[in-house]
């Protein structure tokens, strides 16, 4: 979707950053384990909760970097 100005499109290399929080939570071999525990939470629970932070970070960066001025 390019436009005459070029700067109004939705395309940006930064958008590739959105892939990480989509893929990570869908790979159970990364987190399907009890150990190591963190504050008593098995890996399964604390790592998936930690992926929320990955999602927030990636979407925030993409938003800031692709904001139209």
């Amino acid at each position: 979707m390019t436009t005459p100005n070029g700067d109004r499109g939705d395309r940006s290399p930064w958008n590739w950053l959105l892939i990480a929080p989509i893929i990570l939570p869908l790979l159970p071999f990364l987190y399907n384990s009890d150990e190591p525990r963190l504050f008593g939470f098995p890996l399964f629970y604390w790592l998936q909760l930690a992926f929320i932070a990955v999602g927030v970070t990636c979407t925030s960066i993409v938003y800031q970097m692709t904001k139209r001025r």
Binding site: L18, P25, L26, Q48, L49, F51, I52, G55, T59
Partner: peptide, 12 residues
């Protein structure tokens, strides 16, 4: 939890 993580980058 993974459901409500992946949804936002997908629909961003």
């Amino acid at each position: 939890v993974p459901y409500t993580i992946v949804v936002y980058p997908i629909v961003f």
